[in-house]
Structures are given as structure tokens and as C-alpha cells.
Amino acid sequence: MAGSIPGAAELARALEADGSLLYAVDGQDLDLVDIWPEHGSAAGLKLQVGFGVTGLVARTGKPVLLESDSPRNELHRRLLGLGPEQTVARMCVPLRGLDGNVVGVLAVHRSPRRPFCQEDLRAAESFAAVLGLRLHAEELWRAVNRHRGERDRLVKQAISAQEAERRRIAFDLHDGVTTALASMSFHLSAAELTVSELAADEDPAVSSRVQELRRARAELVSARELADMAYTQTRSAISGLHSLVLDDLGLVAAIESLVRMADRESGPAIELVVDPAAEPERIPDHAAAALYRIAQEALANVVKHAEASRVVLSLRRVGDSLVLGCTDDGKGFDPARRRSARSSEADQAQHFGLSSIAERCALIEASLRVESAPDRGTTVLVELPLQPADSA
């Protein structure tokens, strides 16, 4: 309230007034944003656009000079320093914003023995343009902060909902598909054993029967291998869909688990470097989830496309930011050429991976830098500002 836009005291002195009040239009209300002399009850004053002298100026956009006025609002009278029968000379000037609309009202007052004149009005209007712009700028800033807060809330909800859906699908796959595949593999193994025993008991002289059983056994072995492969791939998909480690132990532990899983597969050697000062606990849960997905996508890009022998995944503190890095010694690419021509399927797949990373960065307002050159590897850097320690 009072003091958010300074200048009431200076305005009163410049206009030779006993006091001044500065109002901002808020919908159909007029909020008092600055007053001089200061008054402990100022925060309680609420006027309506269109009602009273000040409200009329806000509605019509026309200034008003009153030689003698006696406001009916008791709080307003106290702010003007008026006793029960006293009157006051007033001057109310509209304040306009960038679009020309009235965004506030400047009201000054003094003794009715010295009423305001046109010269006073011209002096007040010389301040009005600047005051209007300042009020409009504050209004826009408040709107930006409101929209930013709403955007942050929606992003958090979207990422949380996405992770919840991933978790649900992962649990459904675990409890349904993987259980069925494991059972299938068990029954196929039992069937293979039974067929093997039957083939062993057959009279070798009856060659056609033995050959049929052997062929059946070979088909069962192939089916069991396919079931085992489907089970392994489903388990891998479950791990990719959702990280229980991220939920339970946080970002660093989740990335460590991601690296261990990648190391078990045939691919480049992966080194994880974590700066003790990184302080990933200072980022919100939805941002941690996004960074985990970015690390996951970056590693997948390297394994699938980079033909690298070594990868360094890092999490470090740089100034007031947390930086996630992924550097490989693979074949690299020409970023400019990649932007202009994405003809091959491999290029399209890798570009899709980088686009996914870029979209996640945009969601959490992190900056993304990709550095690469042919035969010189690729570096992906994601920089996320850390929350202040007192708001973490």
C-alpha cells in the first residue's frame, strides 16, 4: 500500500498542497497506493470508480477543481485531516497509462482559503503523465508476476501429472505384463523339458517321431528366448518410465542409478561427476524430474547415435545455477548443417531427442547449450537457476 509508489510528499510540496493521495484503478475499485502526510488508517480506504469526486475522475478521465468540498466517507475525512464541519479545497487529476486509459488518480488538498486554479492544474498535469506510466508499469509487473506464478503452477502440475502417469503405467506393466512373461517363460521351460524327455524315451528306430519332437523342442526354446527377451525389454521400459530412486532418494541417486543401468548394457564407458556444492535439493520436485528425464534422453542419444567410447555425465554448481552436462567423444555433428538438413533417419531420431531436451528445458526455464563438431564429440549443457536458500 502506502509507499509502493513514492512521490506523494514531493507532489504535495511541488503543488503547495497540505496533503496528497495517489490512487490506482483496480477493476471497479480505487486503491490508495501513496499518501502524505502518512496515516495509520490509510490501508483501510477503498473508493469505487464512478462514485464520489475521485471515483468520477477515474470514470470520466476529466480533472476536477473544487473550492470547498466535504467528503462523506468518514475515513476519507480523517485522511484529509477534516473535523466534523470543516471543508477542503481539492484538485483531482486523472493518470493515464500507455494505452490512454485511466490507471489512477492524483488528489491533492489544502485550505479552502487557497483554492486551486488552472495554473495549479497545469502544474499537476505535468506530473500526471509520468505518474500514470509508473502506475501502469507497476500494474503490468503485477500482472506478469501473476501470470508467471500461474504458469509455474501449471508446469508443476503438468510434470507431476506426467510422472504420475508414468508411475501408473510402470506399475501396470510390472504387475501385469512382466508377471505374465515370467510365467510364460516358466511354462515354456517346463514344456521344453517334457518334450526333451519324450524324445529321449522314443525308439530311435521310429525316426519320424523323434525328429518331430526335436523340432517341437527347438520351437519351444525359441519361444522361451523370445519371452525372456520381452521380459528384459519390459523391465528396461519400466525403469525408463519411472524411477523409484528419484522419488525416494532424490536427483543425484536417480542419475547414479541411471548410469549403473546404462553401464550394464553394451555401450560407451560412462563416468558420473557430481559437485558436492551442486545442492540439487534446492530445486523443486518437478524440476528434478525434468532434469532426470533430460539426463536420461541425453544418455540415450549418446548410446544410440554418437558411436562414442566414453561419456561424462556431470552435475555441478556454477554461480547461482545447477548445471547438468553430458559430454561424449563420439562422431559429433555440424549443428548448422543439422538445422538446415535432417534427411537421414538417424539425424531425425537424434534431433527428436535434442528437441525433447529443449522442450523440457523450456518448461522449467532452464537454458540449453549444445556444442558439437564432426569427429569431436558433443556436449549438452543444461543450466537451471537455483532457488534462494530461504525459499527452498
Rank of each mutant, 00 (worst) to 15 (best):
E256N: 12
I255T: 11
V252C: 13
S239K: 11
G240L: 07
I255A: 09
D247I: 10
I238T: 05
D247F: 10
L249E: 15
L246E: 03
L251V: 13
I238H: 02
I238D: 03
R235T: 07
L249R: 14
S236K: 06
S222P: 05
D248G: 07
G250M: 04
D228I: 01
Q233L: 14
Y231D: 14
D228P: 01
A253C: 07
Q233N: 04
G240V: 05
I255C: 06
A223S: 14
L226R: 08
E256H: 12
A254V: 12
E256C: 13
S239Q: 11
A227S: 14
L244A: 11
V252Y: 10
L241I: 06
S243V: 13
A254Y: 14
R224W: 04
L251P: 13
H242S: 08
A223M: 12
S243N: 08
M229V: 02
D228T: 03
R224V: 05
S239E: 11
D248V: 10
L226K: 09
V252Q: 12
I238P: 04
L246M: 03
Y231H: 14
S239F: 15
S222Y: 07
L226A: 12
V221F: 07
S257Y: 04
L226D: 12
R224D: 04
T234N: 04
M229R: 12
V245F: 03
R235V: 10
Q233D: 12
A237P: 04
A254E: 12
S222F: 09
S222H: 06
L226W: 09
V221D: 06
G240W: 06
R224G: 04
M229W: 11
L246D: 03
S239V: 04
H242M: 01
A253V: 00
L241T: 02
L241E: 03
A227E: 08
L246P: 03
Y231V: 01
E225C: 09
H242P: 00
S243H: 10
D228K: 01
L249T: 00
L246F: 06
L244D: 15
A223K: 05
R235E: 15
I255N: 05
D228A: 05
S236D: 15
Q233G: 02
A223R: 06
R235P: 11
L241K: 04
T232H: 03
A254P: 13
S236C: 10
L246Y: 02
S239Y: 14
L249W: 15
T232S: 08
Q233W: 10
A230G: 03
S236P: 04
I255V: 15
A237I: 03
E256I: 15
V221M: 08
A223E: 06
M229N: 09
D228L: 06
S222C: 10
S257G: 00
D247P: 00
L241P: 01
G250V: 03
V221Y: 05
A227L: 09
E225R: 09
A253G: 01
Q233I: 08
Y231K: 00
G250Q: 01
A237Q: 01
D228G: 02
L226F: 11
Y231M: 09
Q233T: 01
S243Q: 13
D248F: 13
D247R: 00
A253Q: 12
V221A: 13
Y231I: 00
L249D: 14
L249Y: 15
S222E: 15
A253D: 11
S257K: 02
R224A: 07
S243A: 11
L226E: 15
D248Q: 13
V221K: 06
Q233R: 02
T232F: 00
A253N: 01
E256D: 14
